[in-house]
C-alpha cells in the first residue's frame, strides 16, 4: 500500500523538543501518524506533546524502548550528520532528514557509512515521506493529498506539495509521496525509489518531478528503460530556461546549474516516460 513507511511503522523524531521539531511533531500526531517518541540530548526522561510522547537522550535508548524503525530529523545543520550517523548505527531502517544545508563533507561521510549499512536516507532537505491516511513523516502541509495508487517522487519539496495537491483536486490519490531533497549530495536518488514503487503492489503509476542540475534524472531515465514496467509521468521544472532569454542571467549568478537543461526531457521521453510541459498537465496524463 506504500513504500518506506506503512501502518505498522514506528516513527521517532530526532530533535523532538526544538521549535520546529515540536511544532511538526504535533502536526504529524494530528494527522494520525504512528509517532512513538523522540530524542533531545539532556532531556531524556521527560515527556512532550502534552505528555503523549517519551523523550530520550539517545537514539539507542529510544529504539530499545519503542522499537522505532523510522526517524525524522529536525536537528540544526551542524549536528545533523551526527544525528544521521547515530540512527544508521542503531539500525533505523528509514532515516528522513528534513534539515538541509548540511556541510558537503559531512554528507560524504554519511554516504560512505550508508554504503556499508542497510539504512535508507531520504534527504537532506526533504519534506519527508507522506502516505495519505496513514502517516506524514515530515512537514507536508495537512490534508494535501488523498489515498490512492499514484506514487510521487520529487527533488523539490514545494513542487511535491504542488503535485499531490493538484492530483487531489482532480480526485486522484497517492500511494506514497517522497521528496528526495534538492541538496547537492543526497542519500537516496530517483532510481532507488522507482525500484521500490515498481515493487509496491499498491502503486500503479509513478509521477517523477525533476529540476536543473546533477544527472539524477538521466540515471532515472536509464533505470526506467531497464527496470520499470509501470507508467511513469514526469515534469522537469526549469527546462524552459534552456532556450529562454534568462539564460545569461542564470549563468552569471553561477549558483544555478544550466549544463543539463533541455537534455533531461529528451532522455526521459526516450525511456517511454510521458512528459508534462506544465505542472497542471500531469492529471490528464494519468490513466484513470
Amino acid at each position: 500500500m506504500s513504500i518506506l513507511i506503512g501502518a505498522d511503522s514506528r516513527i521517532m523524531i530526532q530533535g523532538i523538543t526544538g521549535r520546529r521539531g515540536q511544532f511538526h511533531t504535533s502536526q504529524m500526531l494530528n494527522s494520525g501518524s504512528p509517532i512513538v517518541g523522540g530524542t533531545s540530548p539532556g532531556k531524556g526522561g521527560e515527556w512532550c506533546s502534552e505528555g503523549r510522547l517519551p523523550v530520550f537522550d539517545t537514539v539507542k535508548d529510544c529504539v530499545e524502548a519503542t522499537n522505532a524503525d523510522v526517524s525524522v530529523i529536525f536537528v540544526p545543520p551542524h549536528s545533523t550528520a551526527d544525528a544521521i550517523l547515530e540512527s544508521i548505527n542503531c539500525g533505523v531502517k528509514t532515516i528522513i532528514s528534513i534539515t538541509g544545508a548540511i556541510p558537503l563533507q559531512d554528507m560524504m561521510i554519511i554516504k560512505s557509512a550508508l554504503r556499508n549499512n542497510d539504512s535508507i536516507l531520504v534527504g537532506p532537505n526533504s519534506p519527508g515521506v507522506l502516505v495519505p491516511g496513514i502517516a506524514n513523516a515530515g512537514i507536508f502541509p495537512r490534508e494535501i493529498a488523498i489515498p490512492g495508487n499514484v506514487g510521487v517522487v520529487s527533488r523539490s519539496g514545494t513542487l511535491c506539495y504542488e503535485v499531490v495537491n493538484t492530483l487531489k483536486q482532480e480526485g486522484i490519490g497517492v500511494s506514497t509521496a517522497v521528496g528526495i531533497g534538492d541538496d547537492p549530495i543526497i542519500g537516496t536518488d530517483f532510481s532507488t525509489l522507482l525500484e521500490l514503487f515498481e515493487a509496491d503492489p499498491h502503486t500503479d503509476q509513478i509521477v517523477l518531478i525533476g529540476g536543473p542540475g546533477g544527472d539524477s534524472e538521466m540515471k532515472a531515465a536509464t533505470f526506467i528503460m531497464e527496470a520499470v514496467t509501470k507508467p511513469v509521468i514526469a515534469y522537469v521544472v526549469g527546462e524552459n530556461l534552456a532556450t529562454s532569454i534568462l539564460r545569461p542571467f542564470f549563468s552569471r549568478s553561477g549558483s544555478l546549474p544550466l549544463d543539463t537543461l533541455g537534455k533531461k526531457t529528451g532522455a526521459l521521453k526516450d525511456a517511454g516516460v510521458l512528459m508534462a510541459n506544465k505542472l497542471n498537465e500531469i492529471p490528464a496524463l494519468i490513466k484513470r
Binding site: S154, S156, T158, L159, V237, L241, F249
Partner: peptide, 29 residues
C-alpha cells in the same frame, strides 16, 4: 535568503528553488 537579479519588472518571493523555477517558467511562458 537567496537573491537573484534579472532585468524584468516583477519582483518575486518564493519558498524553495522548485517554486522559484516554476514561477520563472510561468513568467517566461
Amino acid at each position: 535568503v537567496d537573491y537573484h537579479s534579472f532585468p524584468g519588472e516583477i519582483g518575486c518571493m518564493v519558498n524553495g528553488m522548485g517554486l522559484a523555477y516554476l514561477t520563472i517558467d510561468q513568467l517566461v511562458n
